[in-house]
Design a protein around this nucleic acid. Sequence first.
DNA 1: ATTTAAAATGTTGTATACAAGATATCAAAT
DNA 2: ATTTGATATCTTGTATACAACATTTTAAAT
Lengths: 223, 223
Amino acid sequence: MLTRLPLRDQVYREILESIHRGDAAPGSRVRDTDLAATLGVSRTPVREALLRLTREGVLDSDLGRGFRVPPFDEVEIGQVGQILGSIESLALELTPDFPAERLDRLAKIDAQLEQTRGDAMRCVDLEDEWHRVLLEGCPNRHLLDLIAQLRQVSRRYLAAYLRNAARIALSTLPHQKIAEALRRHDRETAHRLLIQHWERGIGELQSWAARPHSSTERKVAER
Amino acid sequence: MLTRLPLRDQVYREILESIHRGDAAPGSRVRDTDLAATLGVSRTPVREALLRLTREGVLDSDLGRGFRVPPFDEVEIGQVGQILGSIESLALELTPDFPAERLDRLAKIDAQLEQTRGDAMRCVDLEDEWHRVLLEGCPNRHLLDLIAQLRQVSRRYLAAYLRNAARIALSTLPHQKIAEALRRHDRETAHRLLIQHWERGIGELQSWAARPHSSTERKVAER
DNA sequence: ATTTAAAATGTTGTATACAAGATATCAAAT
DNA sequence: ATTTGATATCTTGTATACAACATTTTAAAT
């Protein structure tokens, strides 16, 4: 196509976006053939992306029966959230300092977040960005990679939640409290608040995922 | 070839074993063509395995310049160890109980470990198995998957360490103390001991990786 | 009408083919 | 002898081809 990035990586992002956008309903099949045709590339990079997404927990795959978008499952989001809370909090501990410049950037992201109404995708992007900036000073790159990988799963839930549930916008209050604590160099409190933030957020996603929501997805998932 | 597992998975294991066996020196290139020929399969499943190993941190890959075995790096093993200590300790917390049957199995593994002298690979396998059994009761499957994934990295260091350094066998003392604490239902202590176990082990691997050890590997790594 | 059998179709998993780019080889020039 | 340039070879990244297995459709039998 255009850039200097391997096709598999571009395709990876395309597929992720499409899933987060909710194009593919939970339970629906994902055919490499179709994607290849749609994206105008061959099956090879598409399969590479699909295999990666499967390993990362974003897709399911029954051997020989191809890939599919997994149904929303409150157990899964609970478990993933538990891990994310724990390792983000570890990343926070490992970060040596939080310069004012970075805290300002966090505030700016929050400001944008508050102005964003109705656009679920953008909300999720900004929420992602906030966490990324918060932890960007952590020297353990492996840890940050791991967090980014896991977040792809929680992202799918959050995007669907914001789209489907009545909530239009995310509250930025927890963010602000965490940033405040960091400004005071009160790591202890920031740490506790971050864990709380995850627990609350995941709790909400869980109870949303638990109830048999909208339309077709359950039925499709069975087949 | 023979089984009912996708070739990519069989190939994945073969490559991992070969790396852990130390066949490929750190810094040496890994050509999919060669592997395909050696294993008697096509490049396709080999590349799938190589891409996965790269994502998991077991291999490096410069875009267009193929895959290679990364040199041992004390920073990397330190960071991976930090993560592993943290999430294994989380898995321990989440495990509801440790029935006597499981603790007995741990003891049996330790017994085998004590009898194993000189066979680095077998040592590492048993050490792996011990941790796997310890945490098998953890209900968070995602967490266990993540641990298994990360352990592939630390495994490579441990295998090389046992092969290269003077140490022939692993001490089973830390294992035994952890198991004892669990028998007494003293989770607090078990928890603390597990973290210590990781810190010590990683520390040793780090100081080993830090010194410019044996022969060719540094030179090869540069090219 | 419902169930079973069989053929046709579609998808996957793997193999092979091909082109662009990287690396190595070798000769000529300083 | 070392550097430079040109050529040849290798390797990767992607595309296409093919065979085995799943699924769906169609037809026949009860």
